[in-house]
C-alpha cells in the first residue's frame, strides 16, 4: 500500500508537469494589453497654459480655420486702435476717404434759383 508521502509526491509530479505546460503570453496579447493601457490611461489635468491653448484651438476651429481667425484678429485690432487711439487721428482717417470736389456733390447749386423772384 502506498503511504501518504508517496501519494503526495506523485500528485506533485502531475502538478509540476501542469505548471511547466501553462501557456506563456504571446507577443500579440502583450500588444493588446498595452493598447488597452494606453487608451485607458488618465491624462494629466491641463494647466492654465493648456486651457488657453485649448480655447484658442476652439476659436480657430469655430472661425473657419487659420485664415478666418487671422481676419477676425485683424478686425479686432483695428477696432481697438480706433477706439483707443488719438481722436485727431480719426480726422485724418476721414480726410483720407474724402474725394476731391466732394463739396460740389454734397452741396449742389440750388436748382430753383432761376425762378426765385427778387424782392
Amino acid at each position: 500500500m502506498m503511504d501518504e508521502r508517496d501519494t503526495e509526491d506523485r500528485l506533485e509530479s502531475f502538478f509540476a508537469a501542469a505548471r511547466d505546460a501553462a501557456p506563456q503570453p504571446r507577443p500579440d496579447l502583450f500588444s493588446r494589453i498595452a493598447e488597452d493601457a494606453a487608451h485607458a490611461q488618465p491624462r494629466t489635468a491641463p494647466g492654465l497654459l493648456g486651457r488657453f491653448a485649448d480655447a484658442c484651438a476652439l476659436l480657430v476651429q469655430g472661425s473657419g480655420g487659420w485664415r478666418g481667425a487671422a481676419a477676425l484678429t485683424a478686425s479686432a485690432l483695428f477696432g481697438l486702435w480706433l477706439g483707443m487711439g488719438d481722436v485727431d487721428a480719426l480726422g485724418y482717417v476721414s480726410d483720407s476717404f474724402a474725394l476731391e470736389g466732394a463739396e460740389d456733390v454734397l452741396e449742389p447749386e440750388d436748382p430753383f434759383a432761376p425762378f426765385q423772384m427778387e424782392g
Partner: peptide, 21 residues
Amino acid sequence: YAEGAKGVAEALSARHTPRVL
C-alpha cells in the same frame, strides 16, 4: 501609470499577465 507615466503599464503587464493567463 495613473499620473500619466509612460512605459509603466508594460512593466506591470510583463509582471502580472503570465500569472493571470
